[in-house]
Design a protein around this nucleic acid. Structure first.
Lengths: 205, 205
DNA sequence: CTTTTAACACCTAGGTGTAAAATT
DNA sequence: AATTTTACACCTAGGTGTTAAAAG
């Protein structure tokens, strides 16, 4: 998943232990198609079969003290997406041509529970955050050439496809429409959610 | 560090949480030199200055339930050694031309303590194990050609130096003198330490 | 003289988009 | 016709011993 979700969190108890996790929720029950001439995603029908329960990606630094979580940008750059409903590698399962929105969860560590293998969210002690600007549409082949160029330009692993001369102008325009101002900001005080920046965001199924 | 220390552990409380860690202790206060004609390490003097407190490598799966630790071979294949006393990357600091022996520690997770950043062993709740056959001598350049060949043959990252035709006979002899019978075995019952196998073992400083 | 460092070629391991083929 | 899969070249990232130079 690139760009990856990056988050800063505040107002945790420095001495308390927390798990931090991410999942990805459907925005609606619609299937979409991309209309080239208007450069827009349009509703193309309803979701066939409702999906399995969404998988949880637990941040590999978990569990960790609030102090440590707050000191760093929390980056979910190892999250993997798949459209294979039979996936056995723990990847997050999504349906192609659908809209999704990531959620970030701050989970208070309860010493009485063994969370080392958690696969779903506990019933209590969880605060969840999501950011409208991180909504994205899943594809198996790119529909929007601007997204392709954004990825080639920003992802180090795609360096082989950069064309230093020819595409410069295109990229400049791209960076305007996909601002890149740093990590999202979580404030742990309930009802005091605050955004610090935005990330352009796409899936790369 | 190759070969890496690999260990199986038994008789943990399946529901208890444990940290597993490794450190490397000096065997004596002697400096050694390798004598070619007798293919032996000989004492060459005493250690100049006694070292800093040994660094602890905490296994990245920590903390984890006893059940999970027992289900898998615990492999310390990410341990890094250095002779740089000013190292700031958390590597284990050793002096070259000295003898060392790794120790494995099973640390009961105390919910009242934050062990997520432990740098030294707690005063209680620790069981430590070491295996005589894992003793090794540190070098900055290989002294013993058998060790070189063992590493080239067994380490996937050294595949580029394998010579399929010419060295076959030499390697066969090597494998006899450096048995490779699988992971070491830890039994958590005190005073019931039991070895299941042995690892040939060298540093690659 | 012995020991250590640094640049190097050669690997493993795995994250990219591309293009053609396969599927629906 | 639209969507998905597969093989591929091209990267990043980093673990090997070698070799020649440097250090002691």
């Amino acid at each position: 998943m690139f760009p990856s979700v990056r988050v800063k969190v505040r107002n945790l108890d420095p001495c308390q232990q927390y798990y931090v996790a991410m999942d990805v929720n459907p925005v609606d029950s619609k299937r979409y198609r991309y209309v080239y001439h208007s450069s827009q995603w349009m509703v193309a029908g309803n979701t066939d079969h409702s999906c399995i329960s969404p998988r949880l990606y637990v941040h590999p630094d978990s569990p960790c003290a609030g102090e440590t979580w707050m000191r760093q940008v929390i980056s979910f750059d190892r999250v993997k997406l798949t459209n294979n409903e039979m996936d056995d590698k723990g990847h997050i399962i999504l349906q192609s041509m659908h809209k999704y929105k990531p959620r970030v969860h701050i989970i208070q560590h309860n010493p009485h529970m063994d969370l080392s293998q958690i696969q779903s969210l506990p019933a209590s002690g969880v605060h969840s955050f999501s950011f409208p600007e991180t909504e994205f549409t899943t594809v198996t082949a790119y529909q929007n050439q601007q997204i392709t160029k954004l990825k080639i330009d920003r992802n180090p692993f795609a360096k082989g496809f950069r064309d230093p001369g020819r595409n410069r102008g295109v990229l400049d325009g791209l960076l305007e429409s996909y601002p890149w101002r740093g990590p999202l900001s979580l404030d742990f005080k309930p009802f005091a959610l605050q955004l610090q920046g935005t990330d352009g965001f796409t899936s790369s199924l």
